[in-house]
Simulated scan of single mutants.
Amino acid sequence: MEGELEALCASVDDVFARPASRENLRAMMRGLLAEVPRKNLWQLAEFAGQPNPDRLQGFLAKAAWDADELRDRVRDYAVAALTAPDAVLIADETGDIKKGT
Rank of each mutant, 00 (worst) to 15 (best):
S21A: 15
R22L: 11
K99T: 15
A87E: 09
L82S: 05
M29K: 00
K39G: 11
D72K: 07
L70W: 10
L44N: 02
V36Q: 02
I90C: 11
D66V: 06
V36D: 06
G31W: 03
Q43H: 04
L70H: 10
A61L: 14
L25W: 12
I90K: 01
M1D: 10
D76H: 01
G58E: 11
T101P: 09
A48K: 06
G49P: 01
G58L: 05
L60M: 09
Y77P: 01
A45T: 03
G95P: 13
E2I: 12
R75W: 10
V88I: 08
G49M: 11
A34E: 15
A67R: 09
A78C: 15
A63T: 02
E35S: 09
A27D: 14
Q57R: 13
G31L: 09
M28A: 13
L8C: 13
L44W: 00
D76V: 03
Q50H: 12
A34R: 07
E2P: 01
L89A: 15
L33D: 07
V36E: 04
L8N: 08
V15R: 00
F59S: 02
L60P: 03
R55M: 13
L56H: 02
A84G: 12
A34H: 10
R38M: 07
F16L: 12
P51F: 05
T94F: 14
A81T: 05
C9H: 10
K98I: 14
A84E: 11
D92L: 14
D68N: 07
D86H: 10
T94L: 14
V15E: 01
Q50M: 15
A61T: 10
E93G: 09
D72L: 09
L33T: 07
R30V: 10
G31E: 07
R38H: 02
F47E: 11
A81V: 02
E93I: 10
D86V: 06
A64D: 07
